[in-house]
Design a protein around this nucleic acid. Sequence first.
DNA 1: GGGAATATTCCC
DNA 2: GGGAATATTCCC
Lengths: 85, 85
Amino acid sequence: MEEAQGSSFDQVPPFLAKTYNMVEDPSTNAIVSWGATGESFIVWNTQDFEKDLLPRYFNHNNFSSFIRQLNTYVSGFNVLHFMDF
Amino acid sequence: MEEAQGSSFDQVPPFLAKTYNMVEDPSTNAIVSWGATGESFIVWNTQDFEKDLLPRYFNHNNFSSFIRQLNTYVSGFNVLHFMDF
DNA sequence: GGGAATATTCCC
DNA sequence: GGGAATATTCCC
């Protein structure tokens, strides 16, 4: 074995690890959750997502800032759906 | 007159304008205030400064992050004093 | 969407 | 202290 220490998350950029954890957390599935195939995630409540969830993981509560950085990592991918009420 | 619009603060980097306003505010003089000559500022209570004041102006509450950026603007200057209790 | 400016963190 | 990586904002 070459690398023995740390989880595989150590090699994932912080932004992606945080986003994964944020979507993964079952306690917030009413706000954001994985899509049916697990290849997308769905923001069910944009207001709660940006004002409540984002600041738990990031230093801001702006949806657009989240999208800006998401685009730097997954540009061109169809990884998220939005839902507004 | 060349430039007619906006205050002179428009030309000041955001970090310096925020820092100026933060120090200038008389209501927080117990936490941070100008030094006697007005050429320095004094942090009287580091805990309150970083946990209460910084987040009002910046996206963090870390003293070291504040100092890091201060150094990019005023490197080599003797502009602040610290006081710990 | 993304380039660029600025901010924040991380680490030496 | 500050270089570099990353994050956040600003603006097109």
